[in-house]
Amino acid sequence: MTSELLKAEEHPSDVFLRPGRIPHIWCPGCSLGSVTNVIIQAIKQSGIDSKKIAIISGIGCTGRAAGYLNFDSFHTTHGRAIPFAIGLSVTDPERKVIVISGDGDLASIGGNHLIHGARRNADITVICVNNFQYGMTGGQVGPTSYEGQFQTTAPYGNVEHPFDLPGLAYSCGATFVARWTALDVRRMKETIIEAILHKGFSFVEILGSCPTTYGRRNQLREGLEILENFRKRTVLQHGADPTKTEISKDGPIIVGKFVEIKDKSTLTDNLLKVQRIAKATKSRGL
């Protein structure tokens, strides 16, 4: 078979992007463009009716993803994507609600919603692009910054310990937990397909590259250098204990599908069960 160069006015993914919204605001060397593309491919290959997909974002660089994607999409306030997603998801059990947001948004200001969303086993997928700091606001230290990391509000190096997001999500009740780096596009796509088809709370952490406000303060000036650094340190370990996947400055980065629990009832299951009980209950008056 001879391969042919396709000539096209449009990119095959254009239909999944809002007309007139590209170019995006992301910097050269940022991995959000390729991560967004992977998410589009995953949604496409999941076979889910695109009308049933809803994308929710909070605030930040990753939070802009919702506005570019041509599905029902909701750009909410800082940290609040998850409760918005839960409210939307329970109105239609067939709806697939995907939260795409950053580590500062989901794990710091929205941390309470992340842990309670996981506890409920709410029927949503959370894709968290972790760039180890606050990018859009100018490179401040964040809840995923490792000790010694230099940021604009950590001029002497970060003095705090970071959250390990897969461990956090798992320990709070998430039933699907995975991590990939932005470099692992093929595996990332397979995992995201599984995550959005999963019943219950699925959490996928993507380690992203932010040369502009993270890399250049931490001897990783180019996006490629960050990805190269990920590649060197990556250890593939499916089924890894997510309580032992913490990321340090120079240590190994454990990636893979860590957790998949299929027999735990989801929030929607339980709400529908309550409806059946309530409908059979006699009114008690006022």
Binding site: P83, F84, G87, T91, I277, A278
Partner: peptide
């Protein structure tokens, strides 16, 4: 639940207001 709706008690009032926007 008697009328086919859902009640959710959230972790705080912020989640509460945002959830009703979503719904």
């Amino acid at each position: 639940p008697q009328v086919g709706g859902h009640f959710l008690q959230f972790e705080d009032e912020i989640a509460s207001i945002v959830s009703i926007l979503g719904a």
